[in-house]
């Protein structure tokens, strides 16, 4: 077991899909326009999901990489060493969460590294910093525990294969009154 396992916590109830996290990631890492280390998508008609690399406990990228370019740090962050990457794309196919991205400029795979240079300086990852409602936070999942927190939510890929370091707070139910003439 890692000393630490840093992981993202995503609160569906507090996210309204503003995409600040996704663009804050691009701003911090100045990634190419086609490279999306973090992605905000619609989970349902009225809820959103923000996902990047989940720094899994059993990372598939790590397992399939022919060059052993992936390592897992003591804090649980999964890193890719771009010097070793040959751009074969196996990790991109293997990851259930679409985390590794092919960068057409470098012709290699790249992915979220949980802003470890920022974390090493005591700063939160750029995406977490940008979230105005704190829908996206990060904790050491080895010690953090909350009864309301769940391991997965409907619409999130099967977690059994890789044991991702992410946890969720689900949405709370709401009252909605649509016009009768609407299609509801």
């Amino acid at each position: 077991m890692m000393v630490k396992q840093m992981g993202f916590v995503f609160n569906v109830d507090l996210c309204f899909g503003c995409m600040a996290c996704e663009i804050a990631c691009r701003n911090e890492n100045q990634t190419d326009s086609t490279v999306r280390w973090r992605k905000v998508s619609r989970l349902t008609d009225d809820s959103f999901l923000s996902v990047s690399c989940n720094h899994c406990n059993s990372p598939e990228c790590f397992r399939v990489c022919p060059e052993n370019a992936f390592t897992k740090r003591g804090d649980g962050i999964v890193q890719i060493n771009s010097d070793l990457c040959i751009g074969c794309g196996l990790c991109i196919e293997a990851c259930p969460y679409g985390a590794p991205q092919y960068d057409p400029l470098t012709q290699k795979a790249s992915k979220c590294q949980m802003c470890y240079p920022r974390q090493d300086k005591g700063l939160p990852p750029a995406c977490v910093e940008s979230c105005s409602t704190e829908a996206l936070t990060f904790v050491d999942l080895n010690i953090f525990c909350d009864k309301k927190m769940v391991g997965t939510i409907p619409g999130f890929p099967d977690t059994r294969l890789t044991n991702p370091s992410i946890a969720f707070y689900p949405a709370i139910e709401r009252n909605r009154y649509f016009l009768k003439s609407s299609n509801k």
């Binding site: 600040a20 996704e22 663009i23 804050a24 701003n27 910093e129």
Partner: peptide
């Protein structure tokens, strides 16, 4: 201009920006 961040000393946006703000580069 290398990157942008919100100004933590601003009491309204409190160090955060919107997606458009983060795209200023």
């Amino acid at each position: 201009l290398m990157k942008i961040s919100g100004d933590a000393k601003h009491g309204y946006n409190q160090g955060r920006l919107c997606a458009k703000g983060y795209a200023y580069t």
